[in-house]
Design a protein around this nucleic acid. Sequence first.
DNA 1: CTTAGCACTTGATTAGTTTGAGTGCTAAAA
DNA 2: TTTTAGCACTCAAACTAATCAAGTGCTAAG
Lengths: 345, 345
Amino acid sequence: MLSERQMMILRAVVRDFTNTGVPVGSKTLAKQLPIHVSSATIRNELAALEEQGLIEKTHSSSGRIPSGEGYRYYVDHLVKPDPLRPNDIDVIQSSLGGDFHKIDEIISQSATILSNLTSYTAFTLKPELKDSRLSGFRLIPLGKRQVMAILVTDSGDVENQTFDVNEKVTGEQLEAVVRLINDQLVGLTLPEVLKKLQQDIPLKIANYLQSPEGFLDIFGDVLTRAAQERFYVGGRLNLLNFSQDSDVDSLKSLYAMLDKTDDIADVLGQPSDKISVRIGNEMTNDALRNFSLITATYDVDQHGQGMIAILGPTRMPYSRMLGIVGAFREELAKKLLDYYRFYDE
Amino acid sequence: MLSERQMMILRAVVRDFTNTGVPVGSKTLAKQLPIHVSSATIRNELAALEEQGLIEKTHSSSGRIPSGEGYRYYVDHLVKPDPLRPNDIDVIQSSLGGDFHKIDEIISQSATILSNLTSYTAFTLKPELKDSRLSGFRLIPLGKRQVMAILVTDSGDVENQTFDVNEKVTGEQLEAVVRLINDQLVGLTLPEVLKKLQQDIPLKIANYLQSPEGFLDIFGDVLTRAAQERFYVGGRLNLLNFSQDSDVDSLKSLYAMLDKTDDIADVLGQPSDKISVRIGNEMTNDALRNFSLITATYDVDQHGQGMIAILGPTRMPYSRMLGIVGAFREELAKKLLDYYRFYDE
DNA sequence: CTTAGCACTTGATTAGTTTGAGTGCTAAAA
DNA sequence: TTTTAGCACTCAAACTAATCAAGTGCTAAG
């Protein structure tokens, strides 16, 4: 259990360190703190905090920096989200104010805004009814040998892919396949579709197509994309700013992660109602040891729930970041509601 | 004019420096060279080469490194492409051996292969009949409020985009628009289409749609994508390996460039029949000062001409890289011919 | 419980040395 | 005229003290 004063000191340590990046010593604290105590007293308290594992030294005679647990305690008990700066409000309003014709444009734009506001890397996920279902499938012949496959889900996602077919495939065959898929698969959730696609469908489809493999590849491709490709990332390059003494390898693995949607999903984790902060070692991914992740969900009424997130150095100004994320989730939800309202009625 | 011996020495300087990265001195050269002369003689020759601006010192008593002009002379007169390593041949064969259903898959895969072989960043452009023309346009209603726009060019490129429309737009209106576009624009080159789109079309389209602006935005969007989005990039992350003492800013501007297709097109420049090498300062782009770019075209008979390129440090082993690029362009052309042969007949 | 005082630790910075690879130049040899 | 041995000189890099500043823990007194 921490005393009032210890909390005050821990808060000051975190704030000072996240601002300056320099380990903070007893004298600095004595000057900053509102109460009037000597540096020796602070030293005693610091020793106590270190005892509890909340702060640590970089070397035996250095100032203190927060430990992972220290950050945890800070965000759980001590931090208060900053109100937005007027300037930030302007940025949000003007960037999100325009006219959009696609949900995805709003979401991807959001990732950019969020990364600009924070100067970190931002993620956005579009709102989603959970367990969205396949609601339609089409094959559209485009030229002598190109066909486009389009897949629509009941949550309004559209995925498509063009591929080349051997001349021998006729329009009727394509139509038969489309009918088959619409009959058998529409209404199922995407994972169910994927499963079925590997089991009974190939046999049936073989009646219409001589070599169904290629076709099934395509369909599976489109399908997995629809199931996964829901992330937008903004400010990728901002990761470079925190490249610890240019550790190229870990940077590479970070960037590799950003390109694998599975991994991102893993990292972002399950949505929870609150704004959640995960700190360095609390994440399974090793490359994220020196990073913190702030995630928040947003609700668009019956249109489901989405997610926004920012990834920055563990040493980030949490109060400001929490303020931004908190405010932005509201703005985004509002914007999306407007959007749906316009196109729905 | 260079003597035989000076050429031999310049070649050795470039080879040694590109291999080791260390400025090379007279003693080292004396040991490596096939002729038997003393280091003092070499020193005299080095002074002569420096006189001509082909090599330079990093400081007054250092060994020599090639200057921009030195590299230029080397690739123009002295280098001979290395034959491929057996291992490299395997990599190409196996990576390009599979079955593909889209040109774009082959091209994008090629960028990956090329970056793996070289451990640099690779670019690939798909073959293209110059001045490809719009050959078809469709609007496909997908749900109550979603429409997909598809655009096909006579070179087989397909671009599409989904957008949301206000309920008020009816199927007939859409069809009217499609008819209009197919009547007026099909057969024109893409730049012509873009131009016309800004002039007379808006008036006519206003007959069918109440607010044509949004729609025209979309169309223009798809169109510019079709005109531009022909590049694939492989091994982006390899740029990190050469981050000179972690100069974050120039790295950032490099990566920003990779995301702007216009810039890439600028940098790659016009196709020429030969394999071309551009060295650091020869490129207009300032961020590329320490890089070299090797570009090569490949021909797929009547299907047009494409391009491959690799971007690496000025200090790259040119003989090996030229070997790889030279061999790969052939393999790629062969593969594409096979592909077209299969789908064409 | 707080605080002044003090001895001690440590990373950073600076200046001075040494080392080694390399150069240019001169004068003799080929 | 070209080549070469020899030598003085240069410079970055690596190493060594020496000093500094910020900070700590501990003790003993308030």
